[in-house]
């Protein structure tokens, strides 16, 4: 499945629009990560644990979105956007949404 955040796909032509598809995930870090982050807050620097968590969440959200797209019979999702929202402290929601379409390679 082709997933892009642009309105079109280079080399392809949109032949059918299936509508908006979405995927979300709410994730929290385990307490150990939080403690490690607390220590890192003394000297600063990248929090690898949180970064990985975000990457996983995003993949999860994209996969759920792709699942919806497949159910609709689309072979591509265009114009994908992400939003995040803080549900409670220590947990973040990641939401991905896009337009499911059917594309055909340009002759």
């Amino acid at each position: 499945m082709i997933v892009v955040n642009t309105e079109t796909v280079a080399g392809y032509r949109v032949v059918e629009v299936k509508g908006i598809v979405q995927g979300n995930t709410v994730r929290a870090k385990h307490a150990g990560r939080d403690i490690a982050a607390g220590f890192k807050n003394l000297v600063g620097g990248e929090l690898k644990g949180y970064t990985e968590l975000l990457t996983e969440s995003r993949r999860e959200a994209i996969e759920r979105m792709m699942g919806q797209g497949q159910q609709l019979g689309a072979n591509a999702i265009v114009n994908v956007r992400f939003t995040t929202s803080a549900v409670t402290s220590g947990a973040a929601e990641l939401y991905a949404y896009g337009t499911a379409v059917v594309v055909q390679p340009l002759a």
Binding site: V43, G44, E46
Partner: peptide, 10 residues
């Protein structure tokens, strides 16, 4: 996609 979390120092 990529993401980064950076912490501040004391």
């Amino acid at each position: 996609h990529s993401e980064t979390v950076v912490a501040s120092d004391y």
